[in-house]
């Protein structure tokens, strides 16, 4: 008798409390040989899996930085530039779209009065730039500056969106309205001069001071038009050489501001 047969005979004897005959044992062993394990149901399989699940360690989620980041500085800058345009919001875009044609028509009306049409450009520039630069302060600026970009890129982006829009819209108006070419240079010169001035003042003295100083300079010149102390009414103000110098100074101020870009000066000083 094999050990397996002996063990089964013993187990059955314990179970039914009497010795099995050799015949019955043979029959039982044959049935056991032919018996097929039933396939588990879907429900019972699911129940087993559910009971085992807590014992299996959860896989660690893949770190985002591995898959989602690009370290191309040009890519980062161009993308942020596009999104900066969105950040300026509808009010800025509608305001600019309305202010520029009005300013342009006002400038045209000054032709032949002895007053440079450039006098209309500064308020448009000052308001446009300040709207763009005012959000660059406090906590929001701190978060921007802890991003992997050069502070100059952030500044350049805002400036490009604001000044670029003024230039493009001004150019379109010049083409559409067929205004005299004499208007283009003084307008552009004033645009860049006041852009540079406002930007520099924003960096070194804060946006509100920049607003006050730039608006004060322009206001003084505006009031002085009839009293012979305004540069915009000076006989040499319409000379192209003077306007080119103003344009150059404006570009120089912008380059200086972006090169230095001490944006950290705008941060708070709380302890």
């Amino acid at each position: 008798m094999s050990s397996q047969r002996t063990r089964i005979a013993h187990e059955m004897a314990t179970e039914i409390d009497e010795e099995m005959t050799e015949e019955s044992l043979d029959l039982l062993l044959t049935k056991l040989d032919l018996w097929q394990t039933p396939a588990p149901s879907i429900e019972s399989t699911a129940a087993v899996i559910e009971r085992l699940r807590p014992l299996v360690p959860a896989p660690k989620p893949e770190r985002f930085r591995v898959t989602g980041l690009s370290r191309e500085p040009l890519f980062t800058f161009l993308t942020s530039l596009l999104l900066q345009a969105r950040l300026l919001g509808r009010v800025w875009w509608i305001g600019t779209a309305l202010a520029l044609p009005v300013g342009y028509l006002l400038a045209l009306s000054l032709e032949g009065t002895g007053i440079s049409p450039a006098i209309i450009a500064p308020p448009v520039v000052i308001l446009g730039l300040l709207w763009a630069l005012v959000p660059m302060r406090g906590a929001a600026l701190q978060v921007e500056l802890t991003s992997p970009v050069n502070p100059a890129q952030v500044l350049l982006g805002r400036l490009l969106v604001s000044t670029g829009t003024h230039l493009v819209l001004g150019g379109l108006l010049w083409l559409l309205l067929g205004a005299p070419g004499a208007l283009l240079l003084p307008w552009t010169a004033a645009l860049f001069l006041f852009s540079g001035l406002t930007l520099l003042l924003t960096l070194y003295a804060g946006t509100l001071t920049a607003l006050a100083v730039a608006a004060g300079i322009w206001g003084t010149q505006f009031v002085g038009v009839g009293r012979e102390f305004s540069l915009f009414a000076a006989p040499w103000a319409d000379r192209p050489a003077v306007q080119l110098i103003a344009l150059g100074v404006g570009l120089g101020l912008i380059a200086w501001s972006i090169g230095r870009a001490p944006l950290h000066r705008l941060l708070g000083r709380e302890g």
Binding site: L82, L87, P135, A139, A140, V143, S147, V154
Partner: peptide, 22 residues
Amino acid sequence: LDLPGQSARDWLLYLAALKGIR
């Protein structure tokens, strides 16, 4: 954060670009 006239989503998208997210 003091972000006048800006939506939270737009600002996060802008920062995501600054942070180099594809």
